[in-house]
Amino acid sequence: MKHLSPGRKVTHWILKMSNFTNSVTEFLLMGFSDTTELQILHSLLFFLIYLVAMLGNLLIVLITTIDRRLHSPMYFFLRNLSIVDACFISITIPKASVNYLVNNRAISVTGCAAQIFLVIFMAYVELTLLTVMACDRYVAIFHPLLYPVVMSPRVCIQMTFICLFTGLLYAGFHTGYTFQLSFCQSNVIHQFFCDIPSLLKISCSETFSNTLSLLGSGLVVVVGCFTFITASYISIFSTVLKFPVKANQRKAFFTCVPHIIVVSLFLISGLYVYLQPPSDSGSIKDIIFSIFYSIIPPFMNPIIYSLRNKQIKEAIRIVMERKLFFLRK
């Protein structure tokens, strides 16, 4: 290197960095702790959360499918939401649990790209489905006579496909745009799963355009959906407050408020993780906020949206009684 001209030195350095970038075949995910006992505890805790979430969501899917009384637009969207939640939590938790249990935090570049794509896709579909569900409740309360026409089975299927198709475009764009970057500073991701903000922090490329596109598209989608959801629930709640029966008011309050809390938790934590400057160093706080948008909603949605519903509880009771009847025979 001492006998090379300045121009050749620069060229040699670029080639060296390029070779390093091409040699990166895996990333290392960060855990909550380096202590073996705590890693096992986190693995078991994650597995327990995953098991409960999967049982709750799959139960909702089963009940709303086999009970004909629940073949309405509201339960159609609840079933789709449960499917999305089951897939959403399956993207991150199993991998993290295995990593903590065997103390192996490696993930391939391909696996990281797939995880990022699926996380963004499921988060987008979850948010848009929640928006569609708010629209469904708004039409049911304010336009009951037009409800069978406005929310016909064909319209429900079309709205679901729009959520899925636009989600594929959204996730595909951000995943592809992210993996055009070079990663030569480090291969350690300060997160328990792959996400775009963590990759932007370790990239040696210019990430301003990536940050700008993530910020702009994220704000448009999140602010738009959250505004519509909040406006719908405020309208619904203000109407219900006019009901003369106090019991109906309390029922509406305990139905709407938990929905808004979970949606707010999902959005605020997601915004915090995805919209903070890439220059900020990773910390345990980022991991905790990621839990709030990637684990808590799939875990809580079956309880808040479905298992507190009288019709679903009645359908579960009937199914259990039938099963016990056949077992006795």
Rank of each mutant, 00 (worst) to 15 (best):
H143L: 13
Y147Q: 14
R154Y: 11
F88Y: 14
T160C: 07
I162S: 10
P144V: 10
V119R: 03
M133Y: 04
Y75T: 05
I162Q: 09
P144M: 10
F88C: 01
F77D: 01
T160A: 06
A96V: 04
N99Y: 00
V109C: 12
K95E: 05
L101D: 00
V98L: 14
M159Q: 06
Y147H: 14
D85E: 04
I120Q: 06
T160P: 01
I89F: 06
P94N: 09
I89P: 02
V132L: 10
P153W: 04
V98K: 14
L127V: 08
L81A: 05
T131F: 08
A140H: 12
I91L: 06
Y138I: 11
C156P: 05
T128C: 11
I89M: 02
M151Q: 07
L81W: 00
K95I: 05
I116Q: 03
C87W: 08
L130R: 08
I107S: 03
I157A: 10
I91F: 11
K95N: 07
V109L: 13
I91K: 03
V132Y: 06
S108N: 12
V102Y: 10
F77M: 11
T160G: 09
F121K: 01
S90I: 02
Y124N: 09
A86C: 08
A123P: 03
I107E: 03
R79Y: 01
V84A: 07
V125Y: 02
V149N: 11
A96C: 08
A134N: 02
L127K: 02
A134P: 02
T110V: 15
L118G: 03
V109Y: 09
T110F: 13
